[in-house]
Amino acid sequence: MKTNFHIESYCSIKENKVILNGDLIVKIDVKTYSEFIKHAYKAIDIKYPKFFKMDNLSKLAFVAAEVLLGKEPTNENKNIAIVFSNKASSLDTDRMHQETINSPEYYYPSPAIFVYTLPNICMGEISIKHKLLTENSFFIFNHFNAYYLHAYTNSLLQNKKTEKVLCGWINYDGEDYEAFVYLVSQKGYWQHTTEEITRLYTI
């Protein structure tokens, strides 16, 4: 099906770097993810105390979304759907929750951990911050799958379910993290095609 949607902007976060539209905007030499993501949060200059309550996956998604949506005016009519995907679902936090219940002698499940044992919670966090009363879907694939994401995003836009889609890959697993998120709409520099998404993801 021929469509004419475009990628307005894209952001990738990995290996201690945050990149916006190909430009390096944050880089720091640290050993751990928690140091890095806190630095990234501070570098993009947001004040949002709830950030520190989030799990690793949500923090990653939150910073990526902030980089792309931070400049969008906040109002309730902003129609930006979220379509995310990853490989590890919420497994990092799942493992933490399992640890709280492994021993019958020390059995103290934590609600603040358990609530993050669903991958879609990170989309809820972004929706709250940016007041997005919109569609959310979270898919799990073995690898980044531009083909399915492209088709699903086109369907949302063509059927006027949304004006824009915040789309991409947000994976956190152990100390391994990778975000590649892009904003699709009517206008933008890059064509919204499977090939172009794959190209931007791999550069």
Partner: peptide, 25 residues
């Protein structure tokens, strides 16, 4: 490739919407 949908307690209904959309695409 299978599509896994994990969207909390709406997953089961949302899966139908996802299937419909991908068929229509």
């Amino acid at each position: 490739e299978p599509i896994l949908l994990s969207n909390a307690c709406v997953s089961g209904v949302l899966a139908i919407a996802v299937a419909k959309r991908l068929i229509q695409q």
